[in-house]
Computed example of a mutant assay.
Amino acid sequence: MAFSRSSMLALAVTSLVSGASAQLETCSNTNTFSCQSSSTNPTCCFNYPGGALLQTQFWDTNPSTGPTDSWTIHGLWPDNCDGTYESSCDSARAYTNISDILTAQGRTDLLSYMQNYWVDINGDDESFWAHEWGKHGTCINTIDPSCYTNYSSQEEVGDFFQKVVDLFKGLDTYQALSAAGITPSSSKTYTLSEIQAALTSLHDGASVYLGCSSGSLNQVWYFFNVAGNAIDGQYQAVDTLTKSNCPSSGIKYVPK
């Protein structure tokens, strides 16, 4: 499907005239998963080229961010099914007023959650959200404005942030590690294999990317393929496409 500016404008005008709520195109090919088809045709129901979607999380300790018993949100990234990715795909939609957009859409509960669990290490949450949307969100082709019926300006922005939060809520990294006996400690260390096992179990048997800084665990990426669009589609856990940079043993998981 072509994503022309004229079609985007037409959809926006229709929405203003009718007053109808925006909806993403209904997808019928719900059994065709991204990265698992030979198709190279991006449509509103097929994520391409960014067919792998990664829900990414932080464990920030210097300075600490977010609750002491939870990881925090990094974002949702489209990956080209091979570890490479597109970025900053539409400068015209690189919005910087994310809080205003969510408030105008009546998504105040979502915004409140983000203020607790999607926080910037330097305290500038608004810039962090704008960065994640502009760099990654604009590259998810199945939430392009032309994929909406009765499109309302910036509707896809609210849908994107809601989806990231919904995925994050289903991936409680802190709890999964704790259940495996892996808890923050100033002295204890862990092996890569035991951390991976705990989070692979959480991720429906699919391996995850584990990131470390100076030998301390600080990132996890959960990879998915999607059938349908990125908002309403079916998410399938898949193995990481990126090799961990953590050591095989002696990994620190320091407290916030």
Rank of each mutant, 00 (worst) to 15 (best):
P184V: 13
C35W: 05
S6M: 05
Y48N: 12
V164H: 07
F224W: 07
Q105L: 10
A104T: 02
L53I: 15
Y48K: 13
S193H: 02
C45R: 13
P145A: 12
R5D: 14
D125V: 00
P78E: 02
L53T: 10
S64H: 04
T43W: 00
A12G: 13
K252V: 15
S112M: 04
L217D: 01
T240E: 07
D79R: 02
T183M: 00
S88N: 07
C27K: 07
S187K: 08
A227V: 12
C246R: 07
A198P: 14
V119Q: 06
W118M: 14
S70L: 09
P78H: 01
S6R: 03
V13F: 04
W77D: 03
F128L: 14
Y117Q: 08
P42S: 05
K252D: 14
F160M: 06
Y148C: 10
P247N: 01
L177G: 09
F128Q: 10
S64I: 14
S64L: 02
T138Y: 05
T242D: 11
R5C: 11
P67K: 00
L16N: 09
E194D: 12
S213V: 14
A104G: 08
I140S: 02
F160C: 05
C81H: 04
K163R: 12
S21Y: 06
I195Y: 04
G181T: 04
S21H: 04
Q57P: 05
Y113G: 10
S21T: 15
C35L: 05
E156C: 13
C89E: 10
W77S: 15
Q57V: 11
A176N: 07
S18T: 15
T26D: 10
N97P: 06
D239W: 01
F224G: 07
H136Y: 09
Q55E: 06
N218K: 11
G137F: 11
Y174I: 02
H74Y: 02
T142Q: 10
G215R: 00
K256L: 10
V13D: 05
V17D: 15
P67W: 01
N225R: 10
S87K: 00
G233W: 03
L210T: 03
Q236V: 05
S214K: 05
Y95V: 14
A180N: 15
F33C: 13
F46P: 10
C45D: 13
L192W: 04
E25A: 12
A20P: 00
V164F: 03
S70F: 09
W77L: 12
M1Q: 08
A10P: 14
C89H: 08
E25G: 11
K188T: 15
T200A: 03
Q162K: 06
Y148Q: 06
I101C: 02
G50K: 00
W59D: 03
I231M: 01
A92H: 06
E194L: 07
K243P: 15
A92Y: 05
G158R: 01
S216N: 11
S64R: 06
A206R: 02
S185N: 11
R93H: 11
S4D: 10
T84D: 02
L111F: 01
A12E: 15
S6H: 07
R5T: 14
K135V: 15
T43A: 03
L9P: 12
T240F: 03
H203T: 15
E86Y: 08
F33K: 14
L54H: 06
V165T: 11
E155K: 06
K169S: 12
I195H: 08
I231F: 01
G228L: 03
E86T: 14
